[in-house]
Amino acid sequence: MVLCRHIPLLAAAVKQFIDFIPLLLFFIVYKMDPRTVEFAGHAFELGGIFSATAVLIASSIVVYGALFASQRKLEKGQWLTLIACLVFGGMTLAFHSETFLKWKAPVVNWLFALAFAGSHFIGDKPLIQRVMGHALSLPQPIWVKLNVAWIVFFLVCGFANLYVAFTYQSIWVDFKVFGSLGLTLLFLIGQGIYLARHMQQPKPDEKD
């Protein structure tokens, strides 16, 4: 069915939105003017990088915890994102230095690139085929090219985040939240256009 061909792209968009929730809360708190908020008899400081980092950690635990509770599992990429958030966010708070948080996005992107690259040598299918192969039928050379495209994408995103974080101090949070999201959406759109050209036609007895 035609709808089935779009399920992987829709799933990727939904996953991107879920991953975006903690980042959006992080951005909102980061942009707030410093203030003290009373909650459950406790006073909390909001505004700035460190309170935003604490919100990022807490919201990530809530979001991925809810996913785990409902699905009884998390994808490996979601585990990686959550662990990276806890490690780099925790170090940012522990050492009171935003440098650790600046390394989170590059490291996560490069680890994803490594996983996609490793799938060319470990296992019988590229990683993208293992993720999307149940819903799409593509010639094997196309799966390989698509997997390479994801490797390049993650490498570029990693270096872009690193460059902006340590070169443009005033906008690195904006780029971390919205720049990365924009790059991902553009890549997904480009992937959709590419897949539309190469997807194998359904059999005559399949109905749209």
Score class of each variant (00 low, 15 high):
Asp124Val: 04
Phe50Thr: 07
His120Gly: 03
Trp143Leu: 02
Gly182Ala: 11
Ile57Asn: 01
Phe159Thr: 04
Ser97Ala: 13
Leu56Asn: 05
Lys76Ile: 00
Phe50Met: 07
Leu46Phe: 12
Ala58Cys: 13
Gln78Ile: 00
Gly48Phe: 02
Glu98His: 01
Ser60Trp: 02
Trp103Pro: 01
Trp150Met: 05
Leu86Trp: 08
Val37Leu: 13
Val131Ser: 05
Gly158Asp: 01
Ala94Leu: 14
Ala54Asn: 11
Leu127Ala: 08
Val37Gln: 11
Trp79Asn: 15
Gly77His: 08
Tyr163Trp: 09
Gln201Arg: 13
Gln200Gly: 00
Lys73Thr: 12
Leu67Asn: 07
Trp150Gln: 01
Ala43Ser: 15
Glu98Ser: 03
Ile142Trp: 00
His134Asn: 09
Ser60Arg: 06
Ile151Ser: 00
Phe112Pro: 01
Met132Tyr: 12
Leu56Gln: 06
Gly123Ala: 05
Gln71Leu: 11
Lys31Arg: 11
Asp19Glu: 12
Val156Tyr: 10
Val62Met: 10
Ala52Arg: 02
Lys102Tyr: 03
Val55Asn: 04
Phe166Leu: 09
Leu23Ala: 06
Val148Cys: 07
Ile21Ala: 05
Phe175Met: 05
Thr36His: 11
Leu186Ala: 14
Phe68Arg: 13
Lys145Glu: 14
Gln191Glu: 13
Leu181Tyr: 15
Leu138Arg: 13
Phe39Glu: 04
Phe68Tyr: 15
Val2His: 10
Phe187Lys: 02
Val14Lys: 09
Phe20Arg: 08
Gly123Thr: 08
Val164Arg: 00
Thr53Gln: 04
Leu136Lys: 05
Gln16Ala: 15
Trp172Ala: 02
Leu138Pro: 04
Ser97Ile: 11
Ala117Val: 02
Thr92Ser: 13
Ile57Val: 09
Ile61Arg: 02
Gly65Lys: 09
Val2Glu: 15
Ile151Cys: 13
Ala135Asn: 15
Phe178Lys: 08
Phe27Leu: 11
Glu75His: 13
Leu188Trp: 10
Asp19Pro: 00
Tyr163Ser: 12
Val148Arg: 14
Ile28Asn: 07
Gln78Val: 00
Trp143Ala: 02
Ile128Val: 12
Ser180Phe: 06
Val108Phe: 12
Tyr64Leu: 02
Gln201Asn: 06
Thr81Trp: 05
Ala69Pro: 03
Gly90Val: 02
Pro126Lys: 15
Gly182Val: 08
Leu181Lys: 06
Trp79Glu: 13
Val37Lys: 07
Leu3Asp: 15
Lys73Asn: 09
Ile28Arg: 13
Ile28Tyr: 15
Asp33Tyr: 10
Thr53Val: 11
Gly179Glu: 07
Ala66Arg: 11
Thr99Ser: 08
Gln169Lys: 11
Leu93Cys: 13
Phe27Glu: 03
Ile128Lys: 09
Tyr30His: 14
Gly179Cys: 08
Leu74His: 07
Pro22Thr: 11
Pro204Asp: 09
Phe112Leu: 14
Phe39Gly: 12
Ile189Cys: 09
His120Lys: 14
Gly77Glu: 01
Gly89Phe: 00
Ala12Met: 13
Cys4Phe: 04
Ile193Gly: 04
Phe26Pro: 01
Met32Ile: 01
Lys104Asn: 02
Val131Asp: 00
Asp33Phe: 09
His96Asn: 10
Ala117Pro: 00
Ser97Lys: 14
Pro139Cys: 10
Phe95Lys: 11
Asn161Arg: 03
Val148Ala: 14
Gly158Leu: 06
Leu146Ser: 11
Phe17Lys: 06
Leu138Tyr: 04
Leu138His: 10
Gly47Thr: 06
